[in-house]
Each structure stands twice: as structure tokens, then as C-alpha cells.
């Protein structure tokens, strides 16, 4: 089915709150759809997959350790790519020469979207690559540019670091763009979003908003 971009972002934000993410993370989660859409990636399905994984019990805090300028990110739990992705991305943008090493992200594209979004004001390009040097994707001006095929979306190990290459041409999200989403995904996200709903108490029914409204 086809959703308006802002309609999908609202649903995604509610679903993220539904799985227990704090408001700020939930909203930024929805913002990560834009870099993926710009790259022509199936943003809705990626976001929904990551969020559904997250619902199975990851912490919002990154499981990590820092040695020098390297953040070692453990992504062995169902997605740390998500919350830790945003946290790690801001850490990456917090100082020169910083890099991330990790293993098995839930979805490297989502992690890269987090990097793209959180470092969009840094003026730097970041690349995610496998240990053999093969680049999976890069960020540029808040957008994601993927290099490889779907098979590389869950590399065993990965490195993210600033890259000194000339800027890639980026394209804005088409103003007329909508988000394609499967009925299953929509149902899953709606279910997660429904976890935020609260049954009115008798007192609230009487006084929560006033009669007639």
C-alpha cells in the first residue's frame, strides 16, 4: 500500500514509542527514512524490520566500549543498529578521526542512515566498509549512497570512518514521493503503535477532556 511520507513517519514514530524508545529517539528514527528514500532504498521495509527486531528486547543504550578514537559496537543483540546507531553516529560526529568497528549490524543500511542523519552538519563523508576494504556504502550531505548488493547488508564485521573523497552528487527526496509499504508491515507497525494507547479511566472519561470533546 501507499502512504504519504509524513503519514509513514508518524506511524513509525508511534511504533518506535510503542516499543519503548524515548520520544527523541523515536522521532529521529523516523527521520532516518529520508536518507534511505533519497538513495532509492526500500526505506519503509528496512525501518519496519529494524523496529520489529528492536521490539524483541534490545536496550536503547549502545553495548559498546571505546579505545582511543575507536568505538567498538557490539550489535549481537537484535538491533543495536538502531538506538546504538544513533548514539554511535553522534559520537562519530563529536570529534575528528573517530571511527566505529562492529559486527553483524541488523541492517547496515539503517546504521548508515543514522550516520548520514546525525552527521549531516559535520561536512564530512563517512563510509562503511568490510575489513577487506570493500566499501558497502557512504554518506553525503545527509543522504545514503549504497555501493553493494543486498547480500552485504549484514556484514560479519564492519568499519565506519570518515572518508576523504569528493562529494557525491545527491538528490533530494522527490516532493511527490510516497512510501510503499506491504500490508503486513503496516499491520506490524500499527500493532507496535497501539502499545502507546491508554484506556481512559472513569475519572478521565469524566474530566480528561471535558464533555463534548
Amino acid at each position: 500500500m501507499e502512504l504519504a511520507h509524513s503519514e509513514f513517519a508518524a506511524l513509525l514514530t508511534k511504533a518506535a514509542r510503542g516499543v519503548g524508545l524515548p520520544d527523541g529517539l523515536a522521532r529521529q528514527n523516523a527521520a532516518l527514512v529520508a536518507p534511505l528514500l533519497t538513495a532509492g532504498l526500500p526505506a519503509a521495509e528496512i525501518a519496519a524490520h529494524v523496529l520489529t527486531s528492536f521490539a524483541t528486547g534490545a536496550s536503547v543504550k549502545a553495548d559498546h566500549r571505546i579505545v582511543g578514537k575507536t568505538l567498538f559496537l557490539a550489535a549481537d543483540k537484535p538491533l543495536s543498529t538502531f538506538a546504538s546507531g544513533i548514539g554511535a553516529a553522534y559520537w562519530l560526529a563529536g570529534g575528528d578521526g573517530r571511527r566505529i568497528e562492529g559486527s553483524t549490524p541488523d541492517d547496515a543500511r539503517w546504521l548508515l542512515a543514522a550516520i548520514a542523519y546525525c552527521t549531516r552538519a559535520s561536512g564530512k563523508i563517512y563510509a562503511i566498509r568490510q575489513p577487506d576494504g570493500q566499501v558497502i556504502g557512504t554518506t553525503c550531505d545527509g543522504a545514503v549512497i549504497m555501493k553493494n548488493s543486498e547480500a552485504d547488508m549484514q556484514p560479519d564485521k564492519f568499519v565506519i570512518e570518515s572518508q576523504s573523497v569528493s562529494a557525491h552528487p545527491t538528490s533530494k527526496i522527490p516532493a511527490y514521493g510516497t512510501v510503499q509499504i506491504s500490508p503486513e508491515t503496516a499491520t506490524n507497525l500499527t500493532t507496535l503503535a497501539s502499545f502507546t494507547l491508554v484506556a481512559d479511566s472513569e475519572r478521565s472519561c469524566l474530566k480528561g477532556a471535558g464533555p463534548g470533546n
Binding site: P22, G24, R27, A83
Partner: peptide, 9 residues
């Protein structure tokens, strides 16, 4: 933010 993502908002 890495240590306190709950304060991002």
C-alpha cells in the same frame, strides 16, 4: 548522547 540517548529530545 552515546551514554544518554534518552536525553536526545
Amino acid at each position: 548522547i552515546l551514554h544518554h540517548p534518552e536525553l536526545l529530545d
